[in-house]
Nucleic acid binder design. Structure first.
Length: 323
DNA sequence: AAGAGGCACAACCGCCCCGAT
DNA sequence: GATCGGGGCGGTTGTGCCTCT
């Protein structure tokens, strides 16, 4: 028996999300928390299927997401982890806080895969890419995996400990679903911060949208797209002068979400500034990461990078394992 | 200036897993 | 234990932008 689609094909809107839709979705999630996606289109009036709503949230609207501009370290981690784990993007994303599996997947498919293939073909001439990737000693794959597993086990253990502590300290104020907080902010604190963090993402989208808008889009026109806005704004948000348009939008969102300033909308700053006090969304963005977990991930990352430093020469042989 | 081709990325599709009943 | 449904995941597609000729 063929399973029916998650929603009716008719009356379901497809294609790029509009800022208006984003706002509706975020507002709803602010109020009800993520989860129960089936109910989202019904309760919000969005003409989107539940799955589309979930993806939009998890990949783009969720707070604390960093987009574009992969660093060298991240790139190396992706290469290592892909060699280790294969195309298990969700697993890889778990090691790269603030990155989504979709983002990593896209980055791999559009850039890294080609880069590595180039490397592979040019590798005959050895060291064509400096010392970054070259084949010399065969890697002790089993050892590598054992070390990874050990760290994963440690992380899991830390997580379960953290969670058990949470349960003892966290109480009824919790919304349904997967939401939980580590410390217990006041309702006002939580509420306003959640708005801020999500509004932040949307504001960045809108700013990017407004940049593109003069090309002929109107506010009621659905032809606009929101892509690239994060990357652009991450790069440009700091030290940016307030133009009239962005200022208007800021004001709009300030009034709409009660958010003080959107000008500090750098993801890194965001995560740094909030990491000790985890909000429901912060937590939801990486459900399995607690403070201890973060510590272990940092450790793991350090280990990966340290390891990459001494084993980069071997990475191609790992990569060849995949190709 | 215009068209072709490539690139980047958001979003969709279909399968699978897992918890609830 | 079987069935159902929601959600997660990976693969793929569609589309706008950019660069080259």
């Amino acid at each position: 028996m063929v399973r029916p689609p998650c929603c009716d094909k008719e009356g379901v809107k497809k294609g790029p999300w509009t800022p208006e839709e984003d706002i509706i979705l975020v507002s709803y999630i602010q109020e009800h928390g993520p989860g129960n996606w089936k109910a989202v289109p019904t309760n919000t009036g969005l003409l989107r299927c539940s799955k589309s709503c979930r993806l939009r949230w998890t990949n783009y609207l969720r707070p604390g997401i960093k987009r574009g501009n992969f660093t060298d370290q991240e790139e190396k981690m992706i290469i290592h982890l892909q060699a280790l784990l294969g195309n298990r993007w969700a697993a890889i994303a778990a090691y790269l806080p603030q990155r989504t599996d979709n983002d990593i997947k896209n980055y791999w498919n559009t850039y890294l895969k080609k880069k590595l293939k180039k490397l592979e073909t040019s590798n005959c001439s050895e060291s064509s890419l400096g010392n970054e990737f070259s084949v010399s000693q065969p890697i002790a794959r089993g050892q590598w995996e054992r070390r990874l597993q050990t760290n994963i086990d440690m992380a899991k253990k830390a997580l379960s400990e953290a969670l058990s502590q949470d349960k003892s300290t966290f109480n009824e104020g919790r919304a349904k679903g997967s939401i939980h907080v580590e410390s217990k902010p006041t309702a006002t604190q939580t509420q306003s911060f959640c708005y801020a963090s999500s509004a932040d993402n949307i504001a960045r989208l809108l700013k990017g949208w407004m940049k593109n808008k003069p090309k002929g889009s109107h506010s009621n026109n659905n032809s606009y797209v929101t892509q690239n806005s994060f990357a652009c704004d991450n790069a440009s948000s700091e030290g940016r002068a307030k133009g009239s348009i962005s200022f208007e939008i800021d004001e709009t969102f300030e009034s709409l979400f009660g958010y003080e300033s959107l000008e500090s909308s750098n993801s890194d700053q965001f995560s740094q500034s909030v990491s000790p006090e985890v909000t429901i969304f912060q937590d939801e963005s990486k459900p399995e990461i607690g403070d201890n977990e973060i510590m272990h991930f940092s450790m793991l990352e350090k280990w990966l990078l340290d390891d990459s430093a001494c084993q980069e020469k071997n990475s191609l042989s790992e990569i060849n394992y995949i190709f």
